[in-house]
Design a protein around this nucleic acid. Structure first.
Lengths: 113, 113
DNA sequence: CAGCATCCCCCGGGATACTG
DNA sequence: CAGTATCCCGGGGGATGCTG
């Protein structure tokens, strides 16, 4: 039994998985692995994600220390998101899932991010 | 763009991740890696999961070919769940997440399943 | 023991419109 | 461009009770 931020988890996997379980976090993290990305770039890459959800996902992951947000004081504003060391630590797991899907789902053959 | 069972996914990771994204599937899969388990045993291990959710999770994963269900025609009934080859393919990813959580969250130190 | 059947509630996530 | 502010809906997931 683990308690973290007022929530209880039954094991480490439960806790860790919860951090990336929402609809788009995994995809976002994988995209950021290619290098830092701007808000609009992320939105375009995912395509389907709404602004609101992209924002909450990014903020939550920033609070968890998975990603870093850098704001350039320009007009129009420029913001870049990138992976932290902690964030880089989960990506290998996501890569495995991606490869696993490509192997096991014919539809996904060769479908990279 | 991938279409699978009337749903669309933007990439392989999206498709693959969706198969294990629900609250308990990852934990269940990791438990099954130790060997085949009975229904009640799984329920006890997770502790927090309700029967209904455990059941739907198991059925969905069976339909996806991640796990196998073996029914022994006895009374009282005995049912055992185990990983398929396909199911074994994702577990390494979950192990990484588990280890990652143990490293990055002090609360989860040494918290095995 | 291993499950269906129900009821219910919360919130994840989409759509739309507006701002610094 | 990079967000906030609302509104709204579906369904994931819990609780409880019943059966072969």
């Amino acid at each position: 039994m683990i308690i973290y931020k007022d929530k209880t988890y039954i094991c480490a996997l439960d806790l860790g998985f919860e951090q990336i379980r929402s609809k788009w976090k995994a995809v976002i993290l994988c995209h950021l692995e290619e290098g830092s990305k701007r808000f609009l770039a992320l939105q375009r890459m995912t395509g389907a994600i709404s602004q609101k959800v992209l924002n909450t996902s990014l903020r939550e992951m920033e609070e968890e220390g998975l990603i870093r947000k850098k704001v350039y004081p320009e007009t129009p504003p420029r913001v870049e998101y990138s992976l932290t060391e902690k964030g880089k630590g989960v990506v290998p797991a996501l890569k495995i899932i991606e490869a696993w899907a490509q192997e096991n789902y014919p539809e996904a053959r060769g479908q990279e991010l």
